[in-house]
Each structure stands twice: as C-alpha cells, then as structure tokens.
Amino acid sequence: MQDINSINILDKFFMFEKLWTPHIIGELNGQYVKLCKLKDGFVWHSHENEDELFMVFKGTLLMDFRDGRTVEVKEGEILIVPKGVEHRPHTNGEIVFNLLFEPKATLHTGNVENEMTVKELGWI
C-alpha cells in the first residue's frame, strides 16, 4: 500500500525561500498541489488548457485581468482563474504564501517564457 501521511502545509512553506518558484507537495487525479511564495509582481500570462486555483494561506494576493479588474484574495480565500484568461498575480510588497492546484501539465508561466519561468519543479 502507498505511504499515506498528513502534510503540514505551513511547515512546508518554511522549507524554501525562493520567490515565484512552485514546489510540489502532493499529486492526485493528474493534478499537482503546489506551494509558492510570492512578492511584488509576476508576468502577464494565460494557460490555454488548464484552470488554476490559487489559495492564500498568508498575506493578500492581487490578481490583475486584462479587462482592468484587480481581484483581491485574502488569507483563507481562493480564486479560480479559468483556462485561457490572461492574468498577472502580484502583491502589495509583502510575501504571500500561496497554494496552487492545477493539472500536472500546466506550464509555470503558461503561454509566456522569460527569466521568471521555472521549467522543472521539485518536491518538498
């Protein structure tokens, strides 16, 4: 039988420092559960075939959309960005602890590749 254990998400956040670099903590039904620390701004991008779920554990995440809206996601809240919707996550200067839930095939920066793109994700 597969090893089944609980995962302390907050403990996992303290296992890494690098910003905007997702770390995998679980896998189910073709999906990864990832943790990422965010600060300041990221790049505009979209994911053609995958929805993304953002869950904030600490801080406030701001999500910009091309229609000019910005959605504020506070601690304990989630935001689901539908596939194909261009978005840009950022913070107000604080470090945000964020959980991502998305298909394994999801590319870090979606349809854009630049210096912030992480091509190989690690497990913690």
Rank of each mutant, 00 (worst) to 15 (best):
G122M: 02
E52N: 10
V33M: 15
N5Q: 09
T117N: 00
N98E: 15
E52M: 05
L19T: 05
E77A: 11
E50I: 00
G122V: 02
V96W: 01
F13A: 10
G68D: 09
G84P: 00
M63I: 03
K104L: 04
T109R: 01
E48W: 08
E27L: 04
P22I: 13
E17R: 13
L28G: 11
L19P: 10
E75L: 13
E52Q: 14
H90S: 01
K12A: 15
E86M: 07
L107C: 00
F54Y: 11
F54S: 07
L10P: 10
H23D: 08
K37A: 02
V118R: 05
E72D: 03
E75Y: 04
H90A: 03
N111G: 05
I25H: 13
Y32W: 13
C36N: 14
N92G: 11
I78R: 00
I95E: 15
G26S: 04
I9C: 09
H47G: 07
S46Y: 15
L121E: 04
G76S: 14
L62C: 06
G41T: 05
G110I: 11
E102R: 06
H87G: 06
T60F: 01
N49G: 07
P103C: 02
D51Y: 14
L19A: 00
I9A: 09
I7H: 05
R88Y: 11
M63C: 09
W20S: 05
T109E: 01
T21S: 05
N8V: 00
F57C: 10
N114K: 00
F65K: 04
L10Y: 11
N111Q: 07
V112N: 10
F65P: 09
L79R: 08
V112Y: 02
L10R: 15
K18Y: 01
V73L: 02
N29K: 13
L38K: 12
W44V: 08
P22T: 13
F54P: 10
I78E: 01
D3G: 02
G84V: 14
P22F: 15
L53Q: 08
L62N: 06
I4F: 03
K83R: 10
I7S: 03
R66D: 15
L28D: 12
V112K: 14
T109Q: 00
V112C: 08
T117S: 02
K119V: 14
I9W: 03
N92P: 06
N49K: 05
S46Q: 06
T106H: 10
M116T: 11
K34W: 04
K12M: 15
V43C: 07
P103N: 03
T117M: 04
G76H: 14
K74N: 04
E115A: 12
H87R: 07
I24W: 08
K37V: 00
Q2S: 06
L62T: 06
